[in-house]
């Protein structure tokens, strides 16, 4: 398997944790709320899913459990940020730290254990195409996350719910004035975002690298947050951002495997450097940010 084949076969799986978490955060931010606790929520989802699979539970149960745990943790964020109108940045950071601490505590006795991942589904015909065949040989969650991407895209583009979420994010006062339940919608978005972050963590710990180690999320939650901005709050761009990030990080691995004469630390920091550069370029386009940006993002809403 050469480098290109390796990247093609694995980039969707590498992108999936970013994609799931970023899709959730995209919906949260579109409704006008900034949840910075994604990293910790992913960690909690990861450990819950890992324990369930370790004790013989199926992956389906593990993902459900992780999504539920993520939603629960984000509910605390919601109560503080919406109910008590606390500063969203501070609360988000606190929830993130809480999630990481909880995951370390719960996962203490599972440190460095492994479980069996999910098997990949072979698509007859497609999977046997030379070079790009690997692209079509993925596990079920990868396919589901692609469906989720389409669903989020379609929701914002075609449905009333998507329209209302955008309206609430742009101008919550006006949305309230025409009769939409701003707070309830934001709770819904936060719970969805938390559940998606939980799923992202579950994928990281039980499928992509099926092992538990404290700190294994390793900044992926932060990258997911960056991807939402990187994608200027548009679903398609968030998807390609996640894909690009997955591909670049695999590129680093492939280069190391082929003994490319480059410092390995430099190679593994490549994805982060790419993110910073792309973010910088995107945010220099004020026009794009103004048209797609969320006007009320991070502001506590008081009626």
């Amino acid at each position: 398997m050469n480098g290109i084949e390796f990247i093609l076969a694995n980039m969707l799986a590498a992108a999936t944790p970013f994609l799931l978490a970023a899709l959730g955060e995209l919906v949260v931010e579109r409704s006008g709320v900034l949840n910075l606790g994604i990293e910790g929520i992913m960690a909690l989802g990861a450990v819950i899913a890992f324990i369930i699979v370790y004790h013989g539970g199926s992956h389906a149960v593990a993902f459900l459990g992780a999504g539920f745990a993520g939603a629960c943790l984000s509910l605390i964020f919601g109560v503080l940020a919406l109910g008590f109108r606390a500063n969203q940045v501070a609360v988000g950071l606190a929830i993130g730290i809480l999630g990481q601490g909880l995951s370390a505590l719960i996962g203490n006795s599972y440190e460095a254990l492994t479980v069996t991942g999910l098997s990949k589904i072979t698509l007859p015909g497609l999977s046997s195409i030379p070079v790009i065949g690997g692209l079509f040989t993925q596990d079920a969650i990868v396919w589901l996350s692609l469906v989720a991407t389409l669903a989020v895209w379609g929701m914002f583009r075609f449905t009333r719910l998507g329209l209302v979420i955008r309206a609430v994010g742009e101008n919550p006062k006006a949305a309230h004035a025409i009769g939409y339940p701003v707070i309830a919608l934001r709770y819904g978005a936060i719970l969805f975002g938390g559940a998606m972050a939980g799923l992202a963590g579950a994928y990281a710990a039980t499928v992509y690298t099926p092992l538990w180690a404290d700190g294994m999320i390793a900044g992926r939650g932060w990258i997911a947050l960056a991807l939402v901005v990187f994608g200027t709050w548009m679903t398609g761009r968030v998807f390609f951002g996640a894909l690009l990030f997955g591909a670049v990080s695999l590129g680093g691995l492939a280069a190391q495997a082929q003994a490319v004469p480059l410092n390995s630390q430099l190679l593994s920091s490549l994805p982060y450097i790419v993110t910073i550069v792309v973010l910088g370029i995107i945010s220099s386009n004020r026009r794009l940010l103004k048209i797609n940006g969320v006007a009320s993002l991070g502001e506590p809403y008081e009626r």
């Binding site: 009333r160 329209l163 209302v164 955008r166 309206a167 742009e170 101008n171 006062k173 006006a174 949305a175 004035a177 025409i178 009769g179 939409y180 048209i291 797609n292 006007a295």
Partner: peptide, 22 residues
């Protein structure tokens, strides 16, 4: 029905999208 002094329209949406909210 009410027409506000400081309008309650959403700038990033189109006219018909704004109306379809109600």
């Amino acid at each position: 029905g009410m027409v506000f002094q400081h309008f309650s329209l959403f700038e990033t949406l189109t006219v018909v999208e704004n109306i379809s909210l109600i």
